[in-house]
Design a protein around this nucleic acid. Structure first.
Lengths: 93, 93
DNA sequence: TAGATATTTAGGTAACTATCTAAATATTAA
DNA sequence: TTAATATTTAGATAGTTACCTAAATATCTA
C-alpha cells in the first residue's frame, strides 16, 4: 500500500462517499450500492480499490459481504500526508 | 479546485517530489527538471496539474518561470481530508 | 440438491493520463 | 532585430481507469 495507491483511492468522489457511509456503520455491498446509481459490478470495483489501499476491510456474513472502514489506517494516512505536504519552511520568499 | 482535483494531484510521486523540492525554496522549472529524468514538457504537464489544484503558483522572472508552494492551501486540504476520512465514529463493531 | 439471493470476476469499450518529439512563445543579450 | 535560452503548447501514442453486460461463485432455504 503505497501513499500513491491510497491517495488515488481517495481521489474519487464515489469512493469518498463510500467512506462516509462506512464511517457511520459497517454495511454489506448491496446496501452501499443503494446510495449510488451505478451498477453493482462498478461499485464492487470501487470497493476493491479501497480494499487494495487498505482503507476498508470486508468479511463474509452469510450471503452478505460486510465492508468496514479501517480507522487506524485512515489516521496514519493523514499523518503521512501532513509529513509530505505540511510543515513547509521556505528559505526564500 | 475540487478535493478530487487536489487529491489526484497528490496521488503521483513525481508531483509529491516537486512539492518536497518547493518546500525548501522556490525554483524555476528548469531547476525542478534536473531532479527528474523525464523531459521538460512532461514536467511542465505535472507542474500544470499542481497549479490547477492550486497547490503551487508560478511567476515569471526574466527568462525563468519560478514555481512556489501554496502553503495555506496545503493546510486547508489536510483539514478537509481530516473531515472526510478522519474522526470516524462507528455504531457497530 | 435445486433455486434464489448477494457479490465478484471476466471481458469489452470509451475516456483519461503520462510520456514523447516538434513547434511556438517570451525574454534577454549581442 | 537576430540569436540564444527557458518554458509552454500541440499533437501523437501507449497504458490505465471506470463503466457496462454477462457469467461465475458462494451461501442459504426449501
Amino acid at each position: 500500500m503505497t501513499l500513491s495507491t491510497t491517495l488515488n483511492a481517495l481521489a474519487d468522489p464515489t469512493r469518498r462517499k463510500i467512506i462516509q457511509l462506512l464511517k457511520k456503520k459497517d454495511l454489506p455491498a448491496g446496501e452501499i450500492a443503494k446510495n449510488f446509481t451505478m451498477t453493482l459490478p462498478s461499485l464492487s470495483h470501487h470497493l476493491n480499490i479501497l480494499k487494495m489501499a487498505n482503507l476498508v476491510s470486508s468479511r463474509r456474513a452469510g450471503q452478505n459481504i460486510i465492508y468496514s472502514l479501517n480507522l487506524s489506517v485512515v489516521d496514519e494516512i493523514i499523518g503521512e500526508l501532513y509529513g509530505i505536504i505540511g510543515k513547509g519552511v521556505k528559505k526564500n520568499k
